[in-house]
Computed example of a mutant assay.
Amino acid sequence: MFNSFDSRPRIVRLHGTGSVALPGDAMFEEVVARHPTNPSTRAVITVDVTRISDSCGWGVPVMDKIGEHDLIRRHAEKKGEQGMVEYRAQKNASSIDGLPGLPL
């Protein structure tokens, strides 16, 4: 789902089937190579879109983007690669509703 938070609010939803590419997978390496390096990157999600829907977004608040937070980058850099592996194993093995997390 994508939201527009500027003066013309819109909501766009992409429906389809997703797949996960992990480090070492060709798709992961291809996508990651096109983006700035981030030590917290752990997977690439691709979606085969079968339907696109939109709505008015009248309930979407007006917001301004003033920048990106760097908290996740600093957190990952402080923990290091092995620390992030351990953190994910401890904190991300399942979702808050009990669904399995991404493979470690």
Rank of each mutant, 00 (worst) to 15 (best):
E77K: 02
A26Y: 07
T41H: 06
L102C: 10
S4P: 01
S95M: 00
T50A: 10
T17Q: 09
E29D: 15
M1H: 08
S53K: 09
N92I: 01
H75W: 06
S19Q: 15
L71T: 06
P103K: 15
E30R: 14
N92E: 11
R74T: 07
D70F: 04
G67Q: 12
Q90I: 06
I96D: 01
H15A: 06
S4H: 01
M27V: 13
D97V: 12
S95I: 03
C56H: 09
F28C: 05
E81L: 02
S94D: 01
M63T: 08
G24L: 10
P9T: 09
S53Q: 13
M84Y: 03
T46Y: 08
G80E: 09
L99G: 09
P36H: 11
S19H: 14
L99S: 15
H75C: 00
F2D: 08
I72F: 04
V20G: 00
L104S: 14
I66F: 07
S19C: 09
L102M: 13
M63Y: 02
L14K: 09
M1A: 13
T37A: 15
P39I: 00
T41R: 06
E81T: 02
D64G: 04
G59N: 12
S94Y: 06
W58Y: 13
I66P: 01
K91D: 00
P61R: 11
E77D: 04
Y87W: 07
I11M: 04
R74L: 08
S95W: 01
I66T: 13
A33G: 02
T17C: 03
I11A: 11
M1Q: 04
S94F: 10
V32Y: 08
V62P: 00
G59A: 14
Q90H: 06
R34C: 04
S94M: 03
V32R: 13
R88H: 02
E86K: 15
Q82N: 11
G24H: 06
V47W: 03
V62F: 10
K91F: 05
Q90S: 11
E30T: 13
R34M: 10
Q82K: 11
N3E: 08
V62K: 07
D6W: 10
H75S: 13
P103E: 12
